[in-house]
Simulated assay, not measured.
Amino acid sequence: MTNTTHSATTTPAVLADAVWPCLTYSDARAAIRFLVGTLGFVESAVYGEGESVEHAELLWPHGGGVMLGSAGRGSPLDPHADAGNVYLIAPDPATVDTLYEKVLASARAEDPVVRARVTVELCDEDYGSHGFTCRDPHGVYWSIGTYRPPR
């Protein structure tokens, strides 16, 4: 198998919002509260009754988003509930710093449903990113940084 690298001039145009990670949570309603309240996602659509979320779409204000739903609905994703790692591109270091402070504040919250834990401290990487990684209250990892892969 060969490994091919494309330059920006040979790679087809890429849509910034064409990839949407799909996650399953044991408590999707609480996950939505955390993602909106702490990480700054915008709730676009939530379908379901009571505590069950059949389908939700959360927009990342800087492009793209995530889809999620409740575990226990017989979905093939059920065995993967509360697992995953998502990278969010922030437009600048100030945005990363603000989100880092919000995650630190959530770690001190009385309500465990909103407590996140920083797993990789805020730093500047050799490849040019300014960012950090946290684990949300359910176990999903969220890396937030300024690195934007070249197109």
Rank of each mutant, 00 (worst) to 15 (best):
T2P: 07
N3L: 14
N3W: 05
N3V: 15
T4M: 03
T5V: 15
T5Q: 13
A8S: 12
T9D: 15
T11A: 13
T11W: 06
T11S: 04
P12G: 08
A13T: 15
V14M: 13
L15R: 11
A16V: 12
A16I: 13
A16E: 13
D17F: 03
D17V: 06
D17C: 05
A18L: 08
A18E: 11
V19Q: 07
V19G: 02
W20Q: 08
W20E: 07
W20G: 04
W20M: 12
W20F: 13
C22V: 10
L23T: 03
L23H: 06
L23K: 07
L23N: 05
L23C: 05
T24Y: 08
T24R: 11
Y25G: 02
S26T: 06
S26I: 01
S26F: 01
S26V: 01
D27V: 02
A28C: 05
A30G: 07
A30E: 09
A31H: 00
I32H: 04
R33E: 10
R33P: 02
F34G: 02
L35P: 00
V36T: 15
V36N: 05
G37A: 11
G37K: 11
T38E: 05
L39N: 07
G40D: 03
G40I: 01
F41S: 01
F41G: 00
F41T: 00
F41I: 01
F41Y: 02
V42W: 04
V42R: 14
E43G: 04
E43A: 14
E43R: 11
E43W: 10
E43K: 09
S44M: 08
A45M: 15
A45I: 12
V46M: 07
V46E: 11
Y47R: 13
Y47H: 14
Y47W: 14
E49V: 00
E49P: 00
G50E: 06
G50A: 01
G50W: 03
E51C: 02
E51W: 04
E51D: 15
S52C: 05
S52Q: 14
S52F: 05
V53E: 00
V53W: 01
V53L: 00
E54V: 12
H55F: 08
H55N: 09
H55Y: 12
H55S: 10
